[in-house]
């Protein structure tokens, strides 16, 4: 029986179309991207959707539980904290801090790490030795302790946290970019570009970067997630974002002594952190699966 072929079947799909098709079938990637998009939207629209001022205290309305408790009420759907601040509004505004820190730290560490890694992979030899040595030294330093110490000595601010974490977390970018560049360096079209006399910056920008971009995106998402977790841990220990800013980690820290009677004060911000980080990780894993399906393990 002769099957009728659709015209599409006769033409081999382009790599881009194949990738799109794989992406649309990847549940993890779709869920991750959806949740992340929702959180980003929430962060931008915070003043429009937050029911109350996240800083407004009302000691007469302290520790109101969320609506699923019997004593909850609709004016504060997720309850209030120990100072009577609306918890939903603080959670919504908190997304801004997590996203800002995650994104900014990823940019700083990505620039440093990608530059080091690509240089090591492209030039090899002594440059590679020096970069590998730097990575080894960086890995030996306990990130969280060093970050805590510097923030405590200099005095905490949002920008300092971004700078310190950015300067500490470039190691994975460097490791991945180094090996990705090494794989590309020996390929024919890079040799060809070199043979026709292209300058090094041009080869790196035109031939190397486009071919390591996928790996870069994957590391960038994982690093963004890691930076968000680290900021939360620093703020939880009292040396990150300072009160009264509504950082999710700081909210958990402030509510610690109330958690035995008002558990929602720690489960809600923790759940928000967990959901955001999970979404970013799912997105990163999804991008890796879609762009290099053979390297999936």
């Amino acid at each position: 029986m002769a099957a009728i072929l659709a015209p599409d079947d006769l033409v081999a799909p382009t790599p881009g179309a194949l990738m799109r098709r794989r992406a649309l079938r990847h549940a993890g990637l779709l869920i991750g991207a959806g949740v992340l998009a929702a959180v980003i939207l929430m962060a931008f629209a915070a003043p429009l959707i937050a029911p109350h001022d996240p800083y407004a205290q009302d000691l007469g309305r302290r520790l109101i539980p969320p609506i699923w408790h019997d004593t909850g009420n609709w004016s504060h759907p997720l309850g209030t904290d120990m100072l009577g601040r609306d918890y939903l509004s603080r959670l919504i505004y908190g997304s801004r801090i997590s996203l800002l820190i995650g994104f900014a730290v990823m940019l700083v560490s990505g620039l440093i790490g990608a530059a080091l890694g690509i240089a090591a992979g492209y030039f090899g030899g002594r440059v590679d030795l020096a970069v590998t040595y730097l990575i080894t030294v960086r890995l030996a330093l306990p990130v969280i302790l060093v970050a805590l110490a510097v923030v405590a000595l200099v005095g905490s601010s949002l920008w300092l946290i971004i700078l310190v974490l950015g300067l500490l977390r470039w190691d994975r970018f460097a490791v991945v970019m180094r090996s990705a560049t090494m794989q590309v360096r020996g390929l024919d079209y890079v040799q060809a570009a070199r043979a026709i006399g292209c300058s090094t910056p041009r080869i790196v920008a035109g031939e190397i970067l486009p071919n390591v971009a996928n790996a870069l995106v994957v590391v960038a998402t994982l690093e963004m997630a890691g930076a968000i977790l680290l900021e939360a841990a620093l703020s939880f220990l009292g040396l990150g974002v300072q009160p009264p800013l509504p950082s999710w980690g700081l909210m958990i820290s402030e509510a610690k002594s109330y958690m035995f009677f008002s558990a929602w004060l720690i489960t809600l911000p923790g759940g928000a952190l967990f959901a955001l980080v999970l979404a970013i990780n799912l997105l990163g894993d999804g991008v890796r699966d879609v762009t290099e399906p053979e390297g999936r393990n």
Binding site: A225, G249, M259, I266, V277, L278
Partner: peptide, 22 residues
């Protein structure tokens, strides 16, 4: 593994405290 990598460690510790301790 995916859940473990996304769980803030201090939050997980607090949840353990609430469940097994309290």
């Amino acid at each position: 593994a995916v859940v473990g990598q996304a769980m803030p460690s201090f939050w997980f510790a607090l949840l353990l405290m609430l469940l097994f301790g309290v």
